[in-house]
Design a protein around this nucleic acid. Structure first.
Lengths: 106, 106
DNA sequence: ATGTTATGCAAGCATAGACTTGCATGTCAA
DNA sequence: TTGACATGCAAGTCTATGCTTGCATAACAT
């Protein structure tokens, strides 16, 4: 699970919904996330599936966790997403400066 | 090839390099892109592979094309990327407002 | 017309990734 | 301790996707 880049992490629809959910309510446990994904997002994945998605998000640095008794709580971390918005210029903008793959990746 | 969302389009390393390349030099043909990807990015994919990547990028709205004789020229379009940067709040920011999947997707 | 150049199409392969299933681990309440 | 609760782990399945191969189409020069 090492070396999960942010781009791949947000490529999955369910993982994006998880991030939305964590932004809406911070510090949720796995069970809470599962429940709210089903209720509010119409996603019916198993607990294990959601757990694996959370592993990916954590490996990409988009989620931070903390054990609390028998629960594991999750927080959204937005910092890694900033690089994406800054990597390419605006449309119709033909700037000559540009960042290479190596600048951002890894 | 219909309904390629932007997130999946930029999930691939080679496609991100193609966007970088088109930002660096607008209006390149498929052959030019292939050559420069090999030279500058160390990517050794076949012409067909690059062509398929360009189809994905075009379907996602990230690339615009125009036929010019026997060549097909390509331009970068950055607009679809803006939504990504605006979807999630900054880190440490615990704003209650949030956009749902439906707001942006499709 | 013929050959070369630049791209398009379609079928097949092989790997990655999303998901499931079953069991194991650890925490808390009684 | 015992049992319920919350999560972790590992193997297997199935589909998506990146890539190749081979042939087809279209434009241009000679």
């Amino acid at each position: 699970m090492r070396h999960v880049d942010v781009y791949r992490a947000i490529a999955d629809r369910t993982r994006r919904a998880i991030l939305d959910e964590l932004v809406d309510r911070s510090g949720q446990s796995l069970f809470e996330i599962c429940g709210r994904l089903t209720m509010k997002h119409g996603i019916s994945s198993s607990r294990q599936a959601i757990s694996q998605h959370l592993e990916v998000l954590e490996a990409a640095g988009l989620v931070r966790t903390r054990r609390e008794g028998r629960s594991k709580l999750h927080w959204f971390v937005g910092a890694p997403l900033k690089a994406i918005g800054q990597r390419w210029p605006d449309s119709t903008d033909e700037d000559t400066s540009h960042s290479t793959e190596e600048d951002i990746e890894k």
